[in-house]
Design a protein around this nucleic acid. Structure first.
Lengths: 144, 144
DNA sequence: TAGTAATTGCAAATTTGTCGCAATTTATGC
DNA sequence: GCATAAATTGCGACAAATTTGCAATTACTA
């Protein structure tokens, strides 16, 4: 077992679930490449893992904060949460569709936590998405 | 026609579309309660409005910036954009599923814009979601 | 290692979203 | 106002995505 798998097992056990082979498969598929769509994930988990199991696993992982859904336009993609990856947010370009990640920013995060506190909310996780024009597309647009 | 409907009509007309009854129905359903899932919206539009029309209307409204999709867990919900509502963000409770809105916060928004600028990104829109435990569920959880 | 609880695979059902086309409604030019 | 063209809608059928029940399998506990 890898270090990450041990961490995964701990997360699961703490909530009363066990680390099974199907769950390992899903987890490792997400480590290989993220973010993935559901369809991609089902494929990358291979034929020996049923579609329904992938759905159930993702649902569980999401509830336990192991996986989060990243929404882009109509669709969503799946990626490991900060606990299993690194904290970041996304900028989506409305013109070319590129998704760029931007890293954590202390000031931003602080402010967010203060707001949560003010509302008696205990955040476990958060996600910020900006939509607009990336640098290239701003230039391209100007030339039209 | 209400003031908001006139504003809606102007948005539509500017883009070459007309304000029809089905479109009024969808708009008003969104005013009544938001955010709604697609299924809820279809229901609240009543039986005389076809599902396909609701989908088509929402697609149009989204393109024209009248409606935006708010992503929550698996699903998305629909709500009017800031132009037709007021700017806000959301906190989702992972336990009971309640979605609470919190208002715009100048400091937060400023920081976000600075970051965008730093990345040469020109944001048109943004969305923040915090996920965690709402006040009630924090209390409930402690009692277990 | 037996017994119990959790998990999975399978197949079917449901839900969600899309599409073509005929019928209806809206806009336009007289 | 009225005829005509253009836009919009309803309907039915379809395709894709997601969920569910249940029997078979796997994991956990004593």
């Amino acid at each position: 077992m890898t270090v990450a798998e041990i961490q995964l097992q701990q997360h699961l056990k703490k909530a009363g679930f066990s680390l099974t082979n199907p769950r390992k498969t899903v987890f490792s598929a997400l480590q290989d490449r993220e973010p993935q769509t559901m369809a991609e994930l089902v494929t990358s988990c291979g034929n020996n893992l049923d579609r329904a199991s992938v759905y159930r696993t993702i649902e569980l992982f999401e509830q336990l904060g192991i996986v989060q859904k990243l929404h882009v336009g109509w669709k969503y993609r799946l990626e490991l949460t900060d606990a299993f990856s690194h904290h970041h947010h996304h900028m989506t370009c409305l013109r070319c569709g590129t998704i760029t990640a931007f890293s954590e920013d202390a000031e931003l995060e602080n402010r967010l936590h203060k707001l949560a506190e003010f509302h008696n909310f205990k955040p476990q996780d958060h996600q910020i998405e900006m939509r607009g024009l990336c640098h290239n597309c701003q230039v391209a647009t100007r030339m039209i």
